[in-house]
Structures are given as structure tokens and as C-alpha cells.
Amino acid sequence: MIAIRDLNHDRDGKPTLREIDLTLQSGGVTALIGPNGAGKSTLLSLIARLIPLQQGQIMVDDLQIGVCANDVLARRLAILPQASDAAPLLTVRELVGFGRYPYHKGRPTAEDDEKVEAALATFDLLPLAERRLDTLSGGQRQRAQVAMTFAQETDYILLDEPLNNLDIAASRSLMRTLQDLARNHGRTIVIVLHDINYAAAYADQIVAMKDGRITHQGPAVEVVTEAMLLEVYGTSASVHHIGDKVVVAV
């Protein structure tokens, strides 16, 4: 369970998060949505300790962010790094291997190697294992990074707008993978999404934010309404129900 209490955050003297009180139960996919500048990414970065906490408290199960040692947290919670070109020379196997670093600190055991192979196999990366990252497509690179966080074996996986620069096939495949990780591997996924339709289609729960505050929380069918779109985004789009799915006509 991720429990956030009385969280306030300022950036450059401007308030970005105000009085956030949020509880995310373990399991399932939670999508954070909201207009640009709502504070979604800041919230995610705070949970992932990428930026230091200013005020308030974040607990990941029994571990308190900002107090708990970095490497202990790295075995509990992972954030998918932005699809960067920081390490174009890495092969896919080396990248996935870094997922085991919090456990072996540079000296992989046979068990670590097995887990890397298992992660490669789970994500169909074995044929690409020796390829360098700069020779892969955006979708393949994203898949390799998810495989790395999979190998990291954390209960919680956070992702910040992972669908940027992905086409529809790669986006759907990534979202299905995440759904599968939540349902069949017991992981808790928290993901910042721009596209409400992806959030509505794949997330078990949606948290909507506006101006640094949380405005809605609940299952997609309850949260995604015409009233919510008007209130949060200031746009009047029509919402349709197809079977048990909800779709925003854009």
C-alpha cells in the first residue's frame, strides 16, 4: 500500500502539490491523469524519491520515503526510467542485468543470471539479447526497460508517461504487459498517462488531478464522465459506454 499524507510541494516558489492525501491499495494498475502542470509527474517523482520531499509523508508499505535507505527501497519500488539515450552502448542483456544491481551490487550470482534470463524470456527479448540499445526501435527499447524493472522484482513499479513516442501497437502491447504484471505477478503499477482512453481501457483505478490537488479517485467507469472532463480539463467531450468500457470521443 502506498499511503501519502499531507503532502505539499513547491517548485520555484510556485505551489505544485497541495494537501495530497492519497491511499493506493496493493495490486492493480492505477493511472494518474490530469492536464499539463497538474502535478502528476511531480507526485510520481516524489513517491520514487527522484526529488526530495518538502512537506508531508509518503509510506510504501512499512518504508518511509526520505528515511529508508536508498538500496532497500530499490528492492521494493522501481521507477521506469525515461526512454533515454543515456547508455546507447548497452546490450539488452546488460540493461536487464542492471535490474539485479540492488541485490548483487555488481557481483551477480548464478541466481541473478537466471532471473535475467527469465526476464528476457518473459518479454520475448531473447532474440534481441545481444543487440545494442541504439539499434532498437522505441517500442523494443521500452520493452527492454520494462524487463529490467521486472528483473528488479519490486512490488511497486512506477511509470512516467511511458507511451510518449510509442505508436499504437507498441502502446497497447506495453499496457497489456503492465496489466499482466499486475494480475499475474502481483505487482502494483502506478502510471502517469496523457491519453484518458488508455487509462480508461487498462487501469483498474484512475486518479485525476488538477492544480496540484486530487479531484477524483475510483474505477474508470465512475471517474471518466463528461462532468469530470469539464471540471478537470475544461473541455466538453462526449463520453460513450461500449459494453463495460468507457470511451472519450476526441
Binding site: 538500496d71 527501497l73 530499490a74 521507477i79 525515461q82 542492471f98 540492488p102
Partner: peptide
């Protein structure tokens, strides 16, 4: 060398 965010993610 992977970058700040990746390093934090891996516990450094």
C-alpha cells in the same frame, strides 16, 4: 553512468 534517475532507481 546510466543517469541520475536510473541510479536512484537502482539504489545509488
Amino acid at each position: 553512468s546510466l543517469g541520475d534517475e536510473s541510479a536512484i532507481n537502482l539504489g545509488e
